[in-house]
């Protein structure tokens, strides 16, 4: 049997009930934006531990780099210069990445059995071996996090270092954070710690400080302490009330069986196309043109 911390609670496109004898603690990462200095040590640690290297890009007129999440960048810092009150400048720096929703839209949307799992500790993980590259997880994610790799056409995102957590270590980003802006522990402990931080922030003049743990996705296992919890969109467009796309509910409800039949027909048609016309090969120029676009 797998490590306790890797007990699986839910699997994509699977109806077999999960084992429930053991009830591991729910974990959470707490990102305290009021302590973040945007040093990007977490980005570096993420690349190192997970052995991914994004390309050396260009400067696009901001401190952000890489500019967006990708199959090789599972976390990026988003820098926002805002003036919540006229003349009062703030530089809000938000570590972006998977929120590990308790009710994960990606998992719900995924049609491939076992490509997305939710561990009993709350971590939502992609098992790329089972990924068919359909991109439905992207549609399903209310935070626009998963990215398809151009290299293998599979979806990637932050694993919350499920491999480290499984053996009792904190995620790599937490370990690297020099200011304690990133913390990891049980969701209960993190919530309690956040309360203290919020009290402190309120005493320092941030009346609307609060915890970001949105209910629309059942709460998240990555939470933010925000100075302006009433205006999460200040933080580079963090959604105020994230919800799973209605398309996913549609798919999970009535549309799924119909689409299943549809997919079967497509597969059948593909098979006949293959035996009658041979494999479908795109020519290289077409692919290059697409990449340039």
């Amino acid at each position: 049997m797998a490590l306790q911390s890797l007990d699986i609670e839910r699997r994509s496109a699977t109806t077999t009930p999960s084992p429930s004898v053991r009830e591991p603690m729910k974990v959470a990462k707490l990102i305290d934006i009021s302590k973040c200095i945007g040093c990007k040590a977490c980005q570096a640690a993420c690349m190192e531990w997970n052995d991914v290297r994004d390309s050396i890009g260009i400067c696009e007129g901001v401190y952000d780099n890489p500019m967006d999440l990708s199959a090789d960048s599972w976390t990026v810092m988003r820098f926002s210069e805002v003036e919540p009150e006229p003349g009062k400048l703030e530089w809000l720096i938000r570590k972006d990445g998977c929120m590990h929703c308790a009710d994960p839209g990606c998992l719900k949307a995924c049609p491939s059995p076992g490509a997305i799992v939710q561990y009993a500790n709350g971590i939502v993980d992609f098992h790329e071996g089972n990924c068919i590259g359909c991109g439905y997880c992207i549609t399903g994610c209310p935070f626009n996090v998963p990215r398809l790799s151009k290299k293998d056409n599979k979806a990637y995102k932050c694993t919350l270092c499920s491999d480290r957590v499984a053996v009792g270590m904190e995620p790599a980003c937490i370990k690297s954070c020099p200011t304690g802006a990133l913390l990891f522990g049980s969701k209960d402990d993190m919530t309690r710690h956040a309360e203290k931080r919020i009290t402190d922030l309120k005493a320092r003049g941030f009346e609307n400080a609060g915890l970001y743990d949105p209910k629309g996705v059942g709460g998240t296992h990555v939470m933010y302490v925000l100075q302006h919890a009433d205006k999460p969109q200040l933080y580079h467009g963090l959604p105020k009330d994230p919800q799973i796309s209605p398309l996913v509910s549609l798919w999970k409800g009535m549309a799924k069986p119909i689409m299943g039949i549809g997919l079967g027909l497509v597969a059948l048609a593909g098979f006949f196309h293959y035996v009658t016309a041979g494999p479908n090969e795109a020519n290289e120029t077409e692919e290059d043109e697409k990449e340039e676009q």
Binding site: I37, G38, C39, K40, Q43, A44, M47, E48, R53, D54, S55, I56, G57, I58, C59, Y63, N65, P66
Partner: peptide
């Protein structure tokens, strides 16, 4: 923060984090 003087432009990760002048 992303760089140390003129050294870390020789290192890939630092250069990914802040690639261009």
């Amino acid at each position: 923060t992303e760089h140390f003087h003129f050294w870390t432009k020789h290192a890939v990760i630092n250069s990914v984090l802040q690639p261009q002048q």
